[in-house]
Write a protein that binds this DNA or RNA. Sequence first.
DNA 1: GGATCCTTCTTCTTCTTC
Length: 352
Amino acid sequence: MFILKRILCVGGIVAPQSTSLPVSQFSSCHNCLRSSKRRSPYSSVDSERYSSLVKSVMSSKVSSQTPETLQAEDDHIYGPVVRAQTPARAEMMRVPKTLHPFLNCVETFVTDEPESGPPARISLNRGQGRSSVPSVTRILQQTLSPEQVFYLERWKRRMIAELGEEGFKEYNQKLFRQGKLFHSAVEDFLTSGPTWEDRNPSETTEHAPEVQGYMQSISHVLEDVRAVRAIESTVQHDTLNYLGIVDCVARYRGVLCVIDWKTSDKPKPFLSNTYDNPVQVAAYAGALNSDDNYKYQVENGLIVVAYKDGSPAHAHRLNQELMLEYWRTWLLRLEKFTAQRSSHESSAFSGK
DNA sequence: GGATCCTTCTTCTTCTTC
């Protein structure tokens, strides 16, 4: 709590858009500067209610440590690491060489296509000239920043030190299994007959025990989901040459969105806690908007982070402005991937 | 029938004060 108070007092943080914390809780910092003996204005904060905010602030980068100093420390504890890392902050400022439009054509927003009927579900068929088209997941994985690679490898080393190689493998398998089961349960719910919109998600209890909590967690989000247009459906961008599978396309609070369902053990109350997820959503939306199989355009994205204990999921809305921002980031990642691949191919061709 | 693909996840943390 001390760190939280200190950060708030020096003005190093502002209330993020996605939190419901009243501005008044952030605006009386001068009181603490006047007298440290006075009763802190934060002592009256409902710590239960804002526990996720506290967790998030406590886990954000307030330390002076960098990947380099952390690595030196880790080397001492875990042994040498394969590669040294340098944060690539300059990349944040880069602009893609080709600013490919996110939306195909503004007019197509107005569509005569009825929103009723079963959602599209175009399955991936690699045989149809798609074998060389890279996927969104692969591109994102292969273009992680050095900083991301560093923290992921560090996390992995620590987990293996704690659980052992086998234990770590099992832990990962469990996470993937839960994620898959959760996706299947959401899919079942959203496609369970023409009257699904009349159902109450919180009353639906016939889920596998492993996903019961996750479904309870997203029940308040499902109440705002209508007119499902696609489920687990392949999208492909022919011009930019990539493909992926969208979790869901539906209206969320009236706006057509690409929706990505996620499970997480840790609370992710802010969009920044979701790492590359917004880039993934923007990539899917951009592909869908260029794909002739879908006769409409999506403007927004939604990342829903569900929790196993049933606590309310965090739903992060990506408005059009954010989607365009992450679309630009996606184009950069795509450029990076293409450059890597062509340099790899040319070195393979020259026999290096 | 086997192999491969697309997903499913995983990261940002440390110590001082009352």
